[in-house]
Design a protein around this nucleic acid. Structure first.
Lengths: 137, 137
DNA sequence: TCCTAACTTGGACTTTGTCCAAGTCAACAC
DNA sequence: GTGTTGACTTGGACAAAGTCCAAGTTAGGA
């Protein structure tokens, strides 16, 4: 954790109590929270923190590459603190639970040049969907 | 096109002018429109069509498997009329343009049992990102 | 300790989408 | 062709998620 704060400080971040709390919330629970969930948990530690600041801080963490934004279904975006190890996501179609997974191979390699239409392709994001044990009929 | 309308009719769809227009808009342009864009194009042909009907109709087409919903970025969902051939998407990080692409291999096969956590995994969706020729610096 | 640019705040606003009661109409029966 | 009826459509209110801004506060260097 202090790693994260140190890194941010090293990049010129002004270390306010609000930013510290948001970073701690994300780092403390290795799950995929929505902005509102982050706000709720942050409020428990710092009652006066505003929604705008949570959104700002999350946006900054994403820009700095410390947190990943995951758009799962067109609802609220989720924030993934596990930005430093490449991984993909497995989502339950029933309850929306998300797990980090590590498939074999490199999906980028599966896209032949003829299918790139002149794009400079830099990333491939894979989302697996299915039913988790609790949601299976 | 009439194929699509026939299929829908065969499934008990009541064929209203509104539904016909929405289906024609999707079928006419093989691009990935947002609901509001579909509404704008539908309005050009049937001025009094309501937003609610466009949303209803798109939802029904998705449920029937005639159209795919694509959540690209947490903004508006896009609707992909190319539901009958498996494909993935390539998105320009600059302008947001989307292309259908057909990678090799099966991403499902790349997820080992040990990474499935008891889920019944049924689908893998791959999103490639990069810069299109027009957005490249 | 002071200063100041950077940060935070709350509320208004926008976008995207859903819901509902009331009105309309496609398709079937006759 | 006419009548009937349940499915469909409408517009407006509402909700969720996120952005923007002017005014107030503060971290960190001088």
């Amino acid at each position: 954790m202090s790693d994260l704060l140190e890194r941010l400080r090293g990049r010129g971040w002004r270390l306010t109590s609000q930013r510290r709390v948001v970073a701690e919330v994300l780092d403390g629970e290795h799950i995929h929270l929505t902005a509102d969930e982050v706000h709720a948990r942050a409020t428990a530690r710092l009652p006066e923190i505003s929604r705008a600041t949570v959104y700002n801080t999350l946006g900054e963490l994403v820009t700095l590459g410390e947190v990943l934004e995951v758009a799962t279904d067109g609802r609220a975006k989720r924030y993934d603190p596990n930005a430093h190890r490449a991984h993909q996501h497995l989502i339950c179609s029933g309850c929306g639970a998300i797990r980090d997974v590590h498939p074999h191979g490199d999906p980028l390699a599966d896209l032949p040049a003829a299918e790139r239409y002149g794009f400079t392709v830099t990333a491939a994001q894979v989302t697996y969907r299915g039913l988790c044990p609790d949601c299976r009929p």
